[in-house]
Design a protein around this nucleic acid. Sequence first.
DNA 1: ATACTCGGAAATTAAAAGTT
DNA 2: ACTTTTAATTTCCGAGTATG
Length: 548
Amino acid sequence: MGADSILTATSSEMSTLVDPSPVTTAAPSPSSAYVNPSQMVTPEPQAGPSHYRTQKDKVALKKRRRDEDTEAPRKSRDGPKKKKANRACAHCQKAHLTCDDSRPCQRCVKRGIASTCTEGHRKKAKYLLDDDELQQLKKKGRVPESSSEPAPALQPTSDTFQSHDPLFNVSFDPNFTFGSEAANLEYSILSAILGNPSPPESGTAPSPSQQQQQQQVSQPLPNSAWSPEPLHAQPQYIQGAPSNFGSPFGDPPQLSMPQPDSLSASQPSPTFLSSYPAPLCRTSSPALQYSYAQPQPQLSAPYNLAPHYARGVVSLGSSSVIRTPSRDTRSHSYESSSQTSPSPTIQSGDHHSVRVYFLMLYLAHLPIQAINVTTPYDYTEGYHFLMKHLPSRFEKNDILRIVRALAIFRPSLIALQMPMTDEDEVFVEKCFQRSLLELEKLISYSGTPTVVWRRTGEICLVAPEFCMLTEWRLEDLVGKRKYIYELFENQSVVEYWENFASHAFENTTKSVYSHCVLLKPSGAPIPSTFCFSIRRDIFDLPSIVIGK
DNA sequence: ATACTCGGAAATTAAAAGTT
DNA sequence: ACTTTTAATTTCCGAGTATG
């Protein structure tokens, strides 16, 4: 590869030569590889800037050149000019400079930014746009349509990671407060990372006025601030959620449930059944079978949480647009549902209800020490760590890529955490701990170098085989708030977060296959192939990542 | 001297329309 | 089926500007 790219690159610098590079791997059609000599224009070397001083002169000269080109068509060619690059890299694109087909391109290599030389952003042609996209384009109308649309190029922007990229300008209903402190904190810290900070230390959502101020200060593009689009892109994760919840102690649910028909095929659509916490995915789980057959008449306090989960779901409803209900309304719906229907039945097709039902029953059979969880898990620490970790280890472009990845799944986290209360968080953590128990068993049988971590990357479980492979000691990885990305080489960290972002809300039965370079404690690299799968909790939040 | 920015010409692409 | 036209989009030339 090296030799090829050097050849190609050299030729790109010498613009009068034909590109000697024999391969244009991306050449999509014959026409793209074809260079019509009659269309080639050789710049006149003698027509330098000194030959015209005013704008008028320049325009006149240009016109004359053009006229010459058309009237005395294409005489005196020194030889065919180099074919244009099939696609400019992001840097060249932004700088309007000559690029080439090799990656990294020669210009980036020269400038020492080869590591960030990636394909430039290309707009979809207007005639290829969907109706939706066209409408969005029209809405954005104020922004000049051509040439000025900022490519989401991986360019360093500012030290605070702020960007005009709409991806980063995901904003949120300023009136909204999350149902739980933990969710508020997680949201705040993610916001802080993404340069749309709500005060992380406050622990509560900022007031509308505060947020509006932030918006004015940090988001110069009025169109993109508060844009609802990223949120609208999310509702598939909660569509089909029940608007009505039944007690877990009523009639057993039917196992054959109609699939929600509202899930769009073109978007990542989580499979509701597959996103059950691990033990519930397996109908072979003895506890589950037992519970299912014999509904438990009395469950003590921790298990009487069902209505809370129901409330979260009720508040979201089956609307295709995420609403931001006030806490009062939600509390009300909870109280009424728990009081007025002491033992309503679960309706068939009510996936979420069924999931909750299963979970309640399942948890009822847990060894009590396994779910000794009384407070929500604090994910903020993980994000704090990531925030500190990033600048200390990565260069700007890598940080930007990671932050961009975080921005991709952030709206979904927000949407799903909206209805959660502290009790929900506790419940989710219990499920998490229970799943860890299951996984621990599973891992002990498998013999594969496996690691299990949270969505923040915090390592929770490590198979002895992994320790053998990497020379890390088990006690240095587990229980020490060690993060999986600390064991990755830089590029692998970036790729991991990008992978995580794009798969976080996918069908959880899918695994993501990738390469990574692990680092031994000594820093020695271990190139590896690995795959990971992401399990989501009962609220569809990515919860456990299992990597092998 | 060198690097960067950016207007705009040229090249490319692909759908639509026309022709055989 | 093939060719031509049309319109949208991308590449990158080259002039101007900024920086050291």
